[in-house]
Simulated assay, not measured.
Amino acid sequence: MTGSDTQTSTSTRSLGLACAASGVLAAPLAVLAGIRIGDVSDTQWSYPHPTGLFLAEALLLVVVHLLQAAGFIGALRLEAAGNSGVGRLALWAGVVGLLGLSVAELWSGLIGGKANDSSIATTVSTVFGITSMVFALGAIVGGIAVVRAGVWRGPWKWTILATGVAIIALVTPANISGSLPFRQIALLIWSVLFIPLGLDIARGLARQAER
């Protein structure tokens, strides 16, 4: 292995560990999202939390989405999608979606005291919807390419695809429903998927070096 290869391997390992850390950080935030704290109106944007706590959570979620994006970048560096140009483009779309979610989280944290039906809240909600779908579609298309390429070995090769499916099948319906327990469970499932995803990337896609 050359010095350049070693540097690339170390960098990719760092990207994978950052992604895994996102799941560890996001899991308790997902649980907290389903717990009502304080006397907060359900018509307020920050519900079920007071604005100060809501802002703190939003700032942490900005970090979470950046760490999640690191995992997708690691997958790209390891050429997990093989020779599929569409797959690589889709994975980059996933990165863009996660960066967009970071912006949405920050904006959301800053308007915690606004009413749910205010114009600014509607705009932020729209940004969340668009960036979530960009991520989901990128993860689904890119995830299918990853599975078909066969570069990623082992049971966790499905995790990129699963993160996209979870947004469509769980997180979006949970947000629409307004149910705190449903939202709590959906976010928790989505969040923890990034732990094995990141760990496999840190290992070089399930011990790719042993092939």
Rank of each mutant, 00 (worst) to 15 (best):
T126M: 15
D200W: 00
H49G: 07
A30C: 12
V95N: 14
I167W: 12
V63S: 01
L29W: 08
P173Y: 03
T122Q: 09
R207N: 06
G112R: 02
S4E: 13
V165F: 13
G109T: 05
S46T: 12
T8N: 11
F54V: 08
I35Y: 01
A27E: 02
A162N: 05
S9D: 02
S9G: 07
V103A: 13
L101Y: 10
P28N: 08
L76C: 02
I185S: 03
S132A: 08
D117H: 03
A80H: 00
T12I: 13
A69Q: 11
G97D: 08
T172K: 11
G52I: 04
A139G: 05
T43Q: 14
G85W: 00
T8K: 11
I140K: 04
I120C: 00
F194A: 04
L78N: 06
A58I: 09
I168E: 05
L188Q: 07
L76I: 09
L89E: 06
M133S: 10
S9I: 01
L53P: 02
A21Q: 01
L180I: 11
L98T: 09
G94S: 10
A139R: 13
G97E: 09
T8L: 07
V151L: 01
E79P: 00
Q44L: 15
V24F: 03
T126N: 11
T159S: 14
G97P: 15
W92V: 15
L53D: 13
N175G: 14
L170V: 13
S22L: 04
G87P: 12
V165H: 09
A145Y: 04
V40H: 11
T126F: 14
S191W: 08
V86C: 01
A206C: 07
L17A: 01
L91H: 06
G97M: 08
I144M: 10
L59E: 12
A166C: 14
I144W: 03
G164P: 15
S119W: 03
G178P: 15
L25M: 13
L180N: 05
S11C: 01
C19G: 02
I37R: 14
W152N: 13
I176T: 15
L199N: 00
A75I: 00
A162M: 10
V103S: 10
C19Y: 05
A115V: 00
V151T: 07
W158M: 00
A30D: 01
V165E: 09
S4T: 12
G164T: 12
T123Y: 12
A18V: 02
A70M: 10
I189H: 00
A70R: 02
V192D: 03
T123G: 03
I201M: 03
T6W: 00
I35V: 15
V165L: 15
V151M: 08
A121Q: 08
A169N: 13
V103R: 13
L76G: 03
C19F: 00
T123M: 14
S118W: 08
P48E: 06
